[in-house]
Structure formats: structure tokens, C-alpha cells
Write a protein that binds this DNA or RNA. Structure first.
Lengths: 337, 337
DNA sequence: CTGAAAGCGCTTACAG
DNA sequence: CTGAAAGCGCTTACAG
């Protein structure tokens, strides 16, 4: 593998000159530039980024960090949509993407992640930070590495969808079409800021409409489809009179519907079910799912653009995106009995 | 950020000694080891991997490479399942994962990828190589970086599922339950080795059963759900008498079913549809999908284990995994008319 | 407009 | 069992 030295030798100039020509420093004679470029071409030279990183601090690597709680992130299409947005902007800037999914145990981010963040490899971090238990951003900050948070964990630079508003919207929809007995499927308190905000939005809307939010039955699951099915079973056994269910993510909603259908309870005729996220599959699902779109790809893109802004020594503003209610076929007015 | 030097100074030894203690070289007095470790502890020292990479060549970074053809990889649950397997083994070894999705144009892998592979960052590569047009493995080989291929592109070390056999199995299933008019949804020839192998398996089985494989109607789509729906429309318009469809991946199969259902054509009563991949969603889909499981997570795990074997200077054998037919509710015997 | 030299933070023969 | 010194491939003031 050819090095800068080889190029310098072949071009008959110093390594300093080659380095500067390659980094587009101005004020070079056209002749020198040509010689250097010809040598680069001839040797098929490509810079050693590890060496460049060591001397300049510019590594050209961005880390995307998804804390691993109890739900394999690769099974979550919402996370993949964020990743799609992040990848596209990163590639656009000619940067590389390092994927890190640190385990979090009793409030601590695992040692491997600390190593990575101090490794000298990482120029900036995109942290999916919705876990109250531990903050990825804090680890990055302590190593003085620029970080943009996607989620509700407070940080200097952050991007998120207004989950509180989304919660209001979906509750509003259920109330508007006439439901009075609405069950909720969520995750345990303090597990995820985004779902907690949705839940607060649901409660707020209930109160606005003159209901007591504390009367809303709620069952905790684990974000997964299977968890949604189990939660639906408990909810139905405890509250057989409910006519609607709001699951705070789509996967739990689909699990809930699957359970109901297996019990020959019709959705939406007997029980309406809504989700949250607007995953691509929700429009293929039977029935198509009423949900809330939070523009995951855009979220990823904006966060990444913000990070590059920060790397360019700007101080961009944080961004909050408005969610959008998507009404499909899994919700309808309750039967009058 | 503390460096090796700081540790050496604090411990009162040379940097060479610190380096060797940290890399577990044997033959050190317990006293020295203790002093060094105490200093490491006290300074909260973590090695700079970029520097280590430069001097030792060990970067602790594995690149996972998914060529980007016309289908966003993050939308493909099969790819995510591979990634899940790859991530778990990589993390187990204390390595980091760099994600690269090079664009391929007219037979050439994009320049960014060449840069990356020569960057000095990459210790080994897992290449999802099913694209005849261009080989990721070739780029890695030319830079003398160890590579394991997941897919059918020929390479020294490779792992794949026996797609030919899978194609046979699914065709065998359709024939066994009595179908005589079977349509195929695939992708254009020379786009994907895996789908091509499945198609060859389907043809082989047809021939075995005394049919002329050239009589099988086939429509080309683009791997996506939407593409599957469009292909189904064309197939149905051209061949209204078909009673079964084999789509060569699950997403196209789900799109096909969605189209049929929208046209009030019942699946499987009017037309049976089978897919390939056994994505997690296929068991939530209505009807649940008959498909072929290719153990994507395991494929990812095995490939990564193989790569670590190669990095340890072993010469492991390539692996072919057997596919498994999964019969669910989207296929049944044709109606007698 | 160009180059000599130091330095980024490690590892690795080589000596002792 | 331990250390001095060279070197990995770049960039960056500093001089000229």
C-alpha cells in the first residue's frame, strides 16, 4: 500500500507539500499540483485515515449509538428508519458510520462504549437517547466529543418528535369518534422518555375532555409485538368492557391486534386499536393501522446535519418535529349496545 | 484525555512497560503490574485505538458492507437480521462495527468505499455479496484485508444458505398440494445471485416433476413490497388462470397478497402465495405466509466467527446452511373447478 | 510557493 | 523483568 512518502518521492516534492496539495490548501503552483496529482494517480494512493486522525484529530468517523435495553434494536423498524436518515447525510459528507449498541446495566453504560468514545476514532456522536437510566450523551460530553441527541434526554443539541402532542392527537381521535372505555399499552415508567411523553399527552387530553386520567387502565409491556399481545390479553381480562386500545408503539399495537383476532374479537368493530410510529408495515397490516407518524427518516437526517454543523464550529438550534395523526382502518366508532 | 505517557509517569515506569502490561505480555513482577494498573485506574486511562492501529495494525474495527443497489437496505428486515447476528459476535470479541453501504454504478464500487478499505481503519470485512455486477470482496482482497462473504459471490471464505435447495422446496410444496398453474415473481436476471439460485431451484424441481420450466410465467420486480404488488398485477392480467404464485422474497410476496386482497381475490382460496426469507412479520401478516427460512441471524453469526478465525490466522472452512420450508396459511390446494 | 522537523499516542524488536 | 529508541503515516506551525 503506497504512502504519502511514496507519492512525495515520485513527485519530487516534500511530504508536507503533498499533504497540503491533497487537503486543498491554496497557493500552489499549478505545476506542483499537477505533479502531485499525477503521482497520486499513478500509485493509486489513498490516505491512511488512522494516521491522519492521529495527527489532526479528524477521523471522518461518526458513531451512531443505540443503547441496548431489552429489545434488539435491529428488530425495530423505527430505529432502522432513523439509521436510514443518518446514513444518507453521513455518506453525503464523505464520512463513515460506526455502529455502537452499548448495553446498559444498573445505570451504567458498558465499558466497551467508554473505550470506543476515548479511542480517538470518533469525531462526533449521534445518540439515540430516550433511556432515563443512562445517558450516552454524558459519556460523549465527558470526552469532549460533539454529540447530537435524538430523543428526549436533555442535551445542548437535540432533535425529537413532539411525543406529548402525538399522545394528545391519538387520544383526541379516540374520544372524537366516541370511545369512552379506552385502555393503554405502554412500557414501565422510566424506561423510555418518548413513550412517557406520549402517555403524558394522552393523560393531558383525557383531562381536557373532562375525564380523570387516573381512571385510564394501563398495562406495561416491552415494546415488542409479543409483549403487546400479552399486554392485550391482560387488559382484556381485566377490562372486558373496553372499546378501544392505544398502544404507544406500532409493534405492540400489532401484537395486540393479533391477540384479539386469535380470540375472534374483531378489530375495529369490537375493539379499536391504534399504534404509534407509522412503520412501513402498518399500511400492509390487516387492518391497516391508525397511528402517529413521527418522520423517523427526517429525524435522522436533521440530527446528522446538526452534528456536521457542530463539527464546523457552528451552534445550531435544536429541532422539534410535529407528529401527524394517520387514521386508517383499525379504529372506528364503538358499537352502541 | 490521559495518555500512555501519563500512566508511565505516574507509575514510575517506561511507556514500553505500560504497553506490555496492558497487552498482557507475561513475565512482569506483580509489583510492576500493580503500579501500572493503579495508575490506569487513577487516571481513568483508555488506550487511543487510532494510535494503536497505526503502530500495530490492529484496529479493532470490522466493516460490514452492504452494496446499495436500488433498494434501501435499512428497509430490508432480512439484512437487519444478518446485521443482528454480525453485531452480536463482533461485540462479543470486543470489536467495533463500521457500516458501509457503497453505491455500485456500472460495475464499479464507489470511490468512498475504496478510500475506506485503504484507510487503515479496517481490520476485516464482512461483505454481503450477492450482486453479480460488482464484488466487495475483490476490493478488500486487493488491499489484502481479510474478508468473509455472506452470499453466493465466490470467495475463499464464504457463508450462505442453500438457495437452490430452498427454491426446490417451495416449488415442491406447491406441486404437492396440487397446483398446476404457478406464476413466479423475481428480480431481473443478474441482479442477485441468491434469487437466481432460488429460481434455478424452482426450475429444477419443475423439470423433475415433468414440467417444462420454460413454461413458468415469471415477472420481474425490485425486491420491494410495492414492486411485488405491481408484478402481481401484471402476472394476473397476463395469466388469469394461475392458482399459485411464488415470490422469491417475502416482501414481494406480501405486496402481491396486498394487491390480490385489494382486488377481492382471496388468498389462499383463489390464489396461493408463498414467499422466501421468513421475516418476523410474516407470522403477523394476514394470512400468515408460507415461506422458506434461511436463518439469517445464524448466517451473520457464522460469517463473523469465520472472520475472527481468519484474523487469528486460521483457515476455516466455508459454510452452507440448509433452508427450511415453513408452511403457513397463505397456501392451500387449488379449488377444483 | 515550498520544505525541514517535530509530534500525534502507541508498539516492537533489540539490549541489557 | 524492564527501558531506550525507532517507527507507524500523516499534519502543522515555523522558516525561508
Amino acid at each position: 500500500v503506497p504512502t504519502l512518502q511514496d507519492v512525495a518521492k515520485l513527485a519530487g516534492v516534500s511530504t508536507a507539500t503533498v499533504s497540503k496539495v491533497l487537503s486543498n490548501t491554496p497557493y500552489f503552483s499549478e505545476a506542483t499540483r499537477q505533479k502531485v496529482m499525477a503521482a497520486v494517480e499513478q500509485l493509486d494512493y489513498r490516505p491512511n485515515l488512522a494516521a491522519r486522525a492521529l495527527s489532526s484529530g479528524k477521523t471522518h468517523i461518526i458513531a451512531v449509538v443505540f443503547p441496548y435495553i431489552y429489545d434488539a434494536i435491529f428488530k425495530d423498524p423505527h430505529v432502522m428508519a432513523l439509521l436510514e436518515g443518518i446514513e444518507s447525510i453521513t455518506t453525503e459528507h464523505g464520512y463513515n458510520l460506526l455502529l455502537s449498541t452499548p448495553r446498559i446495566q444498573s445505570g451504567h453504560v458498558d465499558e466497551g462504549f467508554h473505550q470506543l468514545i476515548r479511542s480517538g476514532y470518533i469525531e462526533g456522536v449521534i445518540a439515540i437517547d430516550n433511556v432515563p437510566e443512562a445517558s450516552i450523551a454524558d459519556v460523549a460530553n465527558s470526552a469532549r466529543i460533539p454529540v447530537v441527541v435524538i430523543g428526549h434526554h436533555e442535551a445542548q443539541y437535540q432533535v425529537y418528535s413532539d411525543d406529548f402532542l402525538g399522545g394528545q392527537r391519538i387520544m383526541q381521535h379516540m374520544l372524537e369518534i366516541g370511545h369512552e372505555h379506552i385502555g393503554i399499552i405502554s412500557v414501565p415508567e422510566n424506561l423510555n422518555f418518548a413513550l412517557h411523553a406520549r402517555w403524558q399527552g394522552v393523560r393531558h387530553e383525557a383531562q381536557e375532555q373532562g375525564l380523570n386520567p387516573d381512571d385510564l387502565p394501563i398495562i406495561h409491556a416491552d415494546l415488542s409485538t409479543k409483549g403487546g399481545a400479552q399486554a392485550m390479553q391482560m387488559l382484556y381480562e381485566q377490562q372486558p368492557h373496553i372499546t378501544a386500545v392505544i398502544a404507544l408503539n406500532d409493534r405492540m399495537a400489532m401484537g395486540a391486534i393479533q391477540y384479539l383476532q386469535a380470540k375472534n374479537i374483531r378489530v375495529p368493530e369490537d375493539i379499536s386499536v391504534a399504534g404509534y410510529d407509522n412503520l412501513a408495515i402498518t399500511s400492509l397490516f390487516t387492518p391497516t393501522l391508525t397511528t402517529v407518524d413521527q418522520q423517523a427518516i427526517t429525524l435522522g437526517e436533521i440530527a446528522t446535519s446538526l452534528l456536521f454543523d457542530v463539527l464546523a464550529n457552528n451552534k445550531p438550534s435544536s429541532v422539534v418535529l410535529p407528529p401527524e395523526l394517520i387514521v386508517r382502518l383499525s379504529t372506528c366508532a364503538p358499537h352502541k349496545q
